[in-house]
Computed example of a mutant assay.
Amino acid sequence: MKASCTADRHQLAAVRDEFRLWLTACDITGPCAQNALVAVNEAIANAMEHACANGSEGTVHITARATVDRFCTEVADTGIWWDPEPRRAAVRGRGVPLMRRLMDHVTLTSGSAGTTVSMDTRVTR
């Protein structure tokens, strides 16, 4: 699966629905699909927020692939993610820890061109 969209939070539901259909087409179902859906949704929501944090229009790119026993995805944006402020941590900043609980591996790479979150997990059927 390859998809791109503008960093507009109003598009999140449509992108999530497209991803859900892709998971089903790959025969990834049950708890494995739910974990992937939640983790990718968090990554896309963060990308949409941070891709246009400086007031510019950003783009979010989603790439996913599935093999017989693994699911891998990358969500890339044109912004820089930041650590939540300590006083806001009670209500913000839970997305990355959630992704790490739901997936086997999560890597965030930030640079001047943007941020990419890469995730993968074993597919259980």
Results as ranks from 00 to 15, higher is better:
Lys2Trp: 11
Ala3Cys: 09
Ser4Leu: 03
Arg9Ile: 09
Leu12Glu: 02
Ala14Ile: 07
Arg16Pro: 01
Leu23Pro: 06
Ile28Gly: 06
Thr29Val: 12
Gly30Gln: 02
Gly30Lys: 09
Pro31Trp: 01
Cys32Gly: 06
Cys32Asp: 06
Ala33Tyr: 06
Asn35Ala: 14
Asn35His: 14
Ala36Pro: 12
Ala36Gln: 03
Asn41Phe: 08
Glu42Met: 03
Glu42Ser: 04
Ala43Leu: 11
Ile44Glu: 03
Ala45Ser: 07
His50Ile: 02
His50Val: 06
Ala51Trp: 02
Ala51Ser: 15
Gly58Phe: 11
Thr59Ala: 08
Thr63Ile: 10
Thr63Leu: 13
Thr63Trp: 01
Thr63His: 12
Thr73Pro: 04
Val75Arg: 03
Val75Pro: 05
Ala76Ser: 15
Thr78Cys: 11
Thr78Arg: 00
Thr78His: 05
Gly79Glu: 02
Trp82Ala: 15
Asp83Thr: 13
Pro86Ile: 07
Ala89Pro: 03
Ala90Gln: 10
Arg92Ala: 13
Arg92Thr: 09
Gly93Leu: 11
Gly93Arg: 08
Arg94Thr: 13
Gly95Val: 05
Gly95Asn: 14
Val96Phe: 14
Pro97Lys: 11
Arg101Asn: 10
Leu102Asp: 02
Met103Ser: 07
Val106Glu: 07
Val106Met: 02
Thr109Lys: 13
Ser110Phe: 02
Ser110Ile: 00
Gly114Trp: 02
Gly114Cys: 07
Thr116Leu: 09
Ser118Asn: 07
Met119Gln: 01
Met119Lys: 10
Thr121Ser: 10
Arg122Trp: 05
